[in-house]
Design a binder for these strands. Structure first.
Lengths: 140, 140
DNA sequence: GGTATAAATAGAAATCATTTCTCTTTAACA
DNA sequence: TGTTAAAGAGAAATGATTTCTATTTATACC
């Protein structure tokens, strides 16, 4: 998936294609890892694109809402996002704890857990989030 | 599992059994739902046990480290904890979005995902976290 | 039971990531 | 090209969480 696909997704979500949004998407494509707001601002500034930190936060939020980015939970409890290459599918992400690479895991066998809960706890499962960590092929 | 078991766990983790730690554990046992630091402080104060907010944060952290509590991810990004009734086992927690009840899910079929990642991404899976949300038997 | 000691707690203060606000600029439509 | 609602800048506020220091207390040992 290249940048243009994401720009189409912006359109679909009634988000204007602006230099800043485009730059953020391209940054994620280029880096291939999860990034935080401050870091994003610094990198873009190096490339002569000034962005206010509040704008970065807002852009990241909008891109997440559009399914372009996914939140990454970090021990330090700060906000990080990774690029989501296959939106609208039942999948998860594998995060390398060393190089921060985010990879799609096009697999989800959640039905077992779901059935277990419905049978044993008599609850209604509505959603689940999963974060898988480890070492990517290059780092292991 | 009653309070005494948790107190033994404190000992095992070289944590002293103090009135505040005991009170926090008993509060989780009584409430059966996830709780935040501020809320905990308010409830304990009502019961004439004054606790400083920094102490609450520290106690919660220690209890999590001892495996007595588990962190609950919340949309508002604040810290919440739930009681973990079966420590040291491969299990997850089912959280009711309405009443905040936390239930043990003594089931985990993670091997499928793990194998998928090792085979397709050539990565080494080290850990995973999962949060399952929905409505409990009483709320659905 | 009394005491020494390291651990635990209180309370004030600091931190700092995130959000809010207001004004200015701009993308996208006709 | 002009219009307009959306997007962005920058300053300022917010408030959850953490840090720091002085005081208290649980516990091990006698």
């Amino acid at each position: 998936m290249d940048a243009n696909n994401y720009l189409i997704t912006l359109k679909e979500n009634h988000l204007k294609i602006t230099p800043r949004r485009r730059a953020v998407i391209e940054l994620f494509l280029k880096e291939g890892r999860y990034l935080g707001p401050y870091e994003i601002r610094v990198i873009l500034k190096k490339r002569s694109l000034k962005v206010g930190l509040p704008s970065v936060y807002r852009i990241l939020e909008e891109l997440e809402e559009a399914g372009i980015l996914v939140k990454v939970e970090h021990k330090n409890r700060q906000i990080y996002y990774g690029l989501c290459k296959k939106p609208h599918q039942d999948h998860h992400h594998f995060i390398c704890r060393k190089c921060k690479k985010v990879e799609e895991v096009e697999y989800c066998n959640f039905t077992g857990v779901s059935e277990f809960i419905e049978k044993n706890l008599c609850g209604k499962v509505e959603s689940h989030t999963m974060q898988i960590e480890g070492l990517c092929s290059a780092c292991k």
